Amino acid sequence: MRILIVEDEPGIANFLKQGLEEESFAVDIAEKGHQGLELALSGEYDLLLLDWMIPGMSGIEICRQFRKTYKETPIIFLTAKDTVEETIFGLQTGANDYIKKPFHFDELLERIKVQLRPKSGEHYKFNLGNITLNTNTHQVFKNDEEIALTQKEFALLEYLMRNKGKVCRRTRIIESVWDIHFEYNTGVIDVYINALRKKLKLDKDENYIQTVRGVGYIAREV
């Protein structure tokens, strides 16, 4: 899951980024309103965290503009505003929730999880052959045996399984799983893919994670 933080206070923004990345989210930061809107409209984010008072363009205006294109993406306001009228105004603008500054990170994390909770009919379990991944419990099973994965291994497997049947390019994997947006040695992906194959004990008949030479990887049923 990828989150955009639009916040002009570097201390708050970096604190949130670190905490959310420890929870396996990919996070981008924008310190100015116009930059935040431009990033938001790229359509690459699963949730927006908007500071109400942001230089150049307020969080309210970002929310208004964003909602013209994206109706469903959750938006949470980070705000010092605390009157009932201001809260109602923010929600009427298109926000899904708000949290008042100062706030506890754990509370914000739970609010984020509520907004990202699968809706009725959406999946939180993904299957790949005899492998099952559960995003709610953060567990992976092969048949009835639980497979212990690191956070990055889990995030990589989740990305591949969410895109089952599609070729996942190296650049997209490194951006989505490692949150890196510049030229980078993508050889680290090969290391993690090999680790996944070993931990999942994939034999010749279980070639669920396949290499697409010169491009990336694809997860598909054998």
Rank of each mutant, 00 (worst) to 15 (best):
Q139E: 13
E38H: 11
I62H: 00
W178L: 11
Y98N: 07
L47Q: 00
E146I: 11
L149F: 02
S24T: 13
K113H: 06
T135Y: 03
I174K: 06
L160P: 02
L41G: 04
E85Y: 10
W178G: 11
S24M: 10
P118I: 05
F105V: 07
Q18M: 15
I131V: 15
Y45C: 04
D97N: 11
K119N: 10
K198L: 06
E175H: 08
N194C: 09
E146M: 14
L37Q: 01
G94N: 04
G187R: 10
F141D: 02
K32A: 13
D97F: 01
A30N: 00
E107L: 14
I60A: 08
I12C: 06
E61D: 14
E107R: 11
I29M: 01
G33A: 03
P55S: 03
L133M: 03
T171L: 12
Y159E: 07
K81C: 10
F141T: 12
W52T: 08
P102L: 04
I76G: 00
I75N: 01
Q18W: 14
N130C: 12
L20M: 09
Y98Q: 05
R117I: 01
T132D: 04
I99N: 03
D106G: 07
E31G: 13
N127Q: 12
F15Y: 11
D205Y: 12
I193Q: 01
W52F: 09
L160W: 02
M53K: 13
K17M: 15
V167I: 12
L91D: 09
Y124N: 12
V84S: 12
L109M: 05
T132S: 13
D46K: 03
P102Y: 02
F103R: 05
L50M: 01
E175W: 04
V212G: 04
F103Y: 09
N14E: 15
E146G: 09
N163Q: 09
A26M: 05
C168N: 09
Q65N: 11
N14P: 09
R220A: 13
R64K: 14
M53Y: 06
L49V: 00
I131P: 06
G11H: 11
E85G: 13
R170W: 07
E21P: 06
T83N: 06
K164P: 09
D190K: 07
G11T: 14
P55Q: 01
G94Q: 02
I112G: 05
L116A: 03
D205G: 13
M53I: 06
L149H: 04
E221W: 11
V222L: 10
K17F: 10
I209E: 02
V140A: 05
K125V: 08
